[in-house]
């Protein structure tokens, strides 16, 4: 058991040396996250109020930018990009259920939107 553990610890160490996030990369990801947030603010405070973009299009842009931010946080800060494919798949595929849930609730919301009394 202890042999197994040391072997694993060694593997982890080698892995860390190989795939660990360097300081340069950390700040790079930080500036990407900051830039994406700044773009969101520009859309919210300037593009939409000034009429350069409709709220409807803006919402899609927000969601796409949010998904990009989520990708950078999960892939780099949480280091998932450098893990084994099996772990990546096992923690990501399940979110298909959430996508399914979103579709269901949008259908439900659309129905209620049309059929509920206006209160």
């Amino acid at each position: 058991m202890s042999e197994l553990h040391t072997d694993h610890a060694h593997g982890e160490h080698a892995h860390g040396d190989h795939g660990g996030l360097g300081k340069k990369k950390i700040w790079q990801v930080f500036f990407i996250l900051l830039a994406l947030t700044v773009v969101e603010f520009i859309i919210a405070l300037w593009a939409i109020p000034a009429g350069h973009m409709s709220q409807h299009i803006g919402n899609y842009v927000y969601i796409i930018l949010t998904l990009f931010k989520a990708y950078y946080i999960i892939a780099y800060f949480m280091h998932l990009k450098y893990e084994k494919v099996g772990l990546i798949l096992s923690v990501s595929i399940v979110f298909l259920f959430i996508v399914y849930f979103i579709v269901l609730m949008l259908i439900e919301g659309d129905f209620l939107h049309l059929h509920m009394p206006l209160v």
Partner: peptide, 24 residues
């Protein structure tokens, strides 16, 4: 990781419900 996946499900449920309410 598996705890975070389950926690993400909880937050997703709350946010999806918020979206559905707002959409309706």
């Amino acid at each position: 990781w598996f705890f975070l996946v389950s926690d993400a499900f909880t937050f997703s449920s709350l946010l999806v419900y918020y979206g559905a309410q707002r959409f309706s």
